[in-house]
Design a binder for these strands. Sequence first.
DNA 1: TCTACTATTGCGACCAGGTCGCACGACCGT
DNA 2: ACGGTCGTGCGACCTGGTCGCAATAGTAGA
Lengths: 143, 143
Amino acid sequence: MDSRSTAALERLRRAGGRVTPQRRIVIEALSTAGPHPSADDVAARVADVAPEVHLSTVYRTLNTLAELGVVTHVHLDHGRSVYHFVGANGAHLVCRSCGVVAHLPADTFHSVSRKVAEATGFALGHGHFAWSGSCPDCAPADS
Amino acid sequence: MDSRSTAALERLRRAGGRVTPQRRIVIEALSTAGPHPSADDVAARVADVAPEVHLSTVYRTLNTLAELGVVTHVHLDHGRSVYHFVGANGAHLVCRSCGVVAHLPADTFHSVSRKVAEATGFALGHGHFAWSGSCPDCAPADS
DNA sequence: TCTACTATTGCGACCAGGTCGCACGACCGT
DNA sequence: ACGGTCGTGCGACCTGGTCGCAATAGTAGA
C-alpha cells in the first residue's frame, strides 16, 4: 500500500466516509494498475483479487474518490476513459493511432494555457479531456 | 441548401456514394442546426422534417460523411459529441460549467501545437477532442 | 465493549448512445 | 429501361455506466 493509497483512505475518512475492504481494494488496484488504467482495467484488477466486489461498487468508489478530489478521470476516445490519482499537473495527450497516453509537463501546459486565455478568454483545465494527436512513434496527425 | 451542403453531396457522389433523400435531409439538418449540433440534435431536426428517417440512418450518414472527410465530430463530455463540417482549423474548447463550445483560432492552435511538439514530440490533431476549461462567463477552471 | 446510526454494498433492472445484420427498395451507370 | 449493388428501415443487440432497494457493516459515542 503506497502513500497515495493511504492518503486516499485518509481523505476518505476525513470526509466522513467509511473505509471498507472494497474501497481499499479499489484504491490498491488503482495504484498498482499502471499510470492510466481505464475503469475496467481497475475493475478487472479488483475482480482478480476479490471477485465478489461488484462492478457498480468499483464505479461508485471511483466516483466518490473523484468527488473528493483524490482521483480524476480523463476521457480518451469514444467510450474510453482512464482514471488516475490527482497529482502532477499538466494535460494528457493520447495518440490517435496507437492509443498511448502521455503527460504534457506542467510548465508547457501553463504556457499553452496562457496563450489560449489570451486568444479566447478560456481558462483551460487540465483534467477531464485528453488532447488527441500522434505520438512520435506514429505517423503525423491527420486533420 | 448552402454551399457546404452541396459540396458534401458532390463529395459523396464523387466517392461513388449515392445521393438519397435521406442523406440530403441529414446534410441539410447538419448545416442548419447551429454550429455544434450533437448527434441527436441532428437526429431531432431530421425527425422534424422526415420522421420516417431512421435513427441508425442518421448515424450511418454521419459516419459516412466523416469517413469522406466532410464532417468531423468532437467528443465533449461523457457521452456527448458534436458534429460539424470540416472547415476552419483550430481546436474546440468546451466550458465545463455552461457547456458552451468555442473555437480556438488556427494561429493560436498552431503555436500551441508547436510548443507541445517541442516538449513531448506529440503532434496535436485539432479534431476529435475538445479541450475543457471555463469560458469567460463562468468561474475559473478548477483542476 | 456494545449499540445504534447510517454509509456502503451486492444485486439486478435499467438507461443512453450507438452499432449491426438482414431483407427490401431505390440510385444511377450503361 | 434495366439491374447490380449501395443504402435504408427495422429491431435486436452491445458497451459503459447508473439506480433503487434491502441487507450488511464501519464508526462514533456511551
